[in-house]
Design a protein around this nucleic acid. Sequence first.
DNA 1: TCAAAAGTGTTAAGTTTACACCCATGA
DNA 2: TCATGGGTGTAAACTTAACACTTTTGA
Lengths: 224, 224
Amino acid sequence: MGFYSAHPRFYVSVDCIIFGFHEGKISLLLLKRNFEPAKGEWSLMGGFVQEDESIDDAARRVLADLTGLTDIYMDQVEAFGSLDRDPGERVISVAYYALVNIDDYDRELVKKHNAYWVNLDELPNMIFDHDEMVALALKKLRQKASTQPIGFKLLPEEFTLTTLQNLYEAIYGESLDKRNFRKHVARMDYVEKVGTIDKTGSKRGAALYRFNEVKYEETGTFKL
Amino acid sequence: MGFYSAHPRFYVSVDCIIFGFHEGKISLLLLKRNFEPAKGEWSLMGGFVQEDESIDDAARRVLADLTGLTDIYMDQVEAFGSLDRDPGERVISVAYYALVNIDDYDRELVKKHNAYWVNLDELPNMIFDHDEMVALALKKLRQKASTQPIGFKLLPEEFTLTTLQNLYEAIYGESLDKRNFRKHVARMDYVEKVGTIDKTGSKRGAALYRFNEVKYEETGTFKL
DNA sequence: TCAAAAGTGTTAAGTTTACACCCATGA
DNA sequence: TCATGGGTGTAAACTTAACACTTTTGA
């Protein structure tokens, strides 16, 4: 007999705000629900926490179920616990955001879940408090991305400086000065020129760079 | 019959990191537990979420139970959901921090709970993951206090500039330059000179100031 | 040859930091 | 009269912001 048996227990779920970056835009991976409750409406990917997993593990599992991706950067947004946030039954939900390389996900799984990448500035209304979760996740992402080198997690291994700048412009929702931006990046010696040229974005071609995590851990500070 | 009945349910609790400021030091209100589990050890004040209250409401209730204080600034830290964080039974806990004016609390209630104000840099080891909660709360407080005028919530209505500086030194854990600090504050026109003098801190006396919330909301930005 | 993206420095403005002395008062 | 905390300004270092032209190349 536990100490706590006098107290009520609750369903606890996790909801994942999955950020991707493609062609200069941030997108979210959203479900067009073909299941109850709220069938036919848009929502975040979520799932119930199970007995044998931490809430962090639940978030990773839910992300993997939808995308096939493991070892993905995730950060907790916060817990949402209004009485009526889920009109069906009371559920306390913990929101997490994930940063994925949008080229890597498992298209079959995503299709099976009836999920789509939706551009940040074309988001539909979502069920429950999912809009609020997204808004707060974005705020946290902006905050964190400005002081920690997590933006690279949205990019492929190798990227051009123009792509990197487009990424940060998309995250902050404002345009940045090209020369000032490149000056900043030049000071980060953990952003290394690979030596190869990417010709897909322009005739002239642009130098490819790579984020060296080890070098960053040793010495780096980050600010963009 | 709900949609979710196949899923497990969990005890959900809230734990409160209660910050106060007194004589140049930040303190936390901690319980020396005279109840199970972990009787005899230090812990945060906590409580189980009930059926009829949101998690935010639960946090407010728990704070009020211990201090008698209502309408207090609280901010969620995050949800803690490791499998074994509570060695008794599985409990998912949501941590909140509160900023209280340390002169205002109900001493009877605090005594009844066997709680004490403990200086931040003399914290005992606490049960479960409460140390981790405090560390994260402090990090969030520092972050937030540097960009939003929440520090005033730790002070009485009227305060001297020296007190205000001591507060921010305590929050950041570093000393600040007096002249630079006062230059900053002078630019905040929502920090108003009351016109009266506080003679308790020095023979000469120091001008009293007040934070004008309305004026801040209209126009203000904050950065310290 | 020209359109399109890549790449490159300088200057002014603003912000941050460092620093030391006089003032008013009660004991 | 003196010990104590209150109050005040300036200059140097650094950071941020604004700004425009040349290069390369494939079509």
